[in-house]
Amino acid sequence: MKLNLKIWRQKGPNDKGSMVSYPIENIDGDMSFLEMLDILNDQLVEKGDDPVAFDHDCREGICGMCSLYINGEAHGPDRGITTCQLHMRKFNDGDTIYIEPWRAKAFPVIKDLMVDRSAFDRIMAAGGFVSVNTSGNTQDANAIPIPKDDADEAFNAATCIGCGACVASCVNSSAMLFVSAKVSQLALLPQGQIEAMDRVKNMVAVMDEEGFGNCSNTGACEVECPKEISLENIARMNREFLKASFVK
């Protein structure tokens, strides 16, 4: 298949950047999207051009490193997958494909399609944990029974891979889905409830400081999330925060 790629090129954080067209041929439907970019990059290197910088690592949809805003959607047109799991069979011969980096003030572009998502790490460092030392001298794992539904719900929230698609898709660049997934996971478990109030307040405070936008409940994040994290987590965080604001 023959494609016309329109890729955001930006030399560095301070460069203005622009969309550049790259025609590419002989793309097979079985290739993953990133393999298609690999081919483009090999061609660019052979021509002596600067290859397109993009983040990727595990290429099986779990590390959360790959990003890319493809044809107007985070992780492209398919649902429930990351860019590395997107296959070229989703496109047609002759298609024009727009490839852009995540766009958010809190995710500054490093180069081309690579962005800096360390804001997420800083939010996590503000409270995304249970304050228990790793000594292993805790009580027996089965000492606290947890209802299966709660455990499953916590698991579903915990499957967040921190890719940032929620922020990228959100018309407001809000990080609520990411933050609420962690808040929810720990609020649903007895181990996490002890610090739940401080956690939600501290994480939200850092989230605001980092310059993410405000949630307006559009639900775009849930649709584009490769792990299909539910909007319900955002409601739960709103609840937790409200409670914390009144109590503490």
Partner: peptide
């Protein structure tokens, strides 16, 4: 020997392992 501690530790950290209906791992 230390394998059992790992599970205790992870549960204490909030790792959501699969559970049975009785609430145990």
């Amino acid at each position: 020997e230390v394998s059992a501690n790992i599970i205790d530790q992870c549960v204490a950290q909030g790792v959501p392992f699969a559970r049975e209906y009785g609430g145990l791992l």
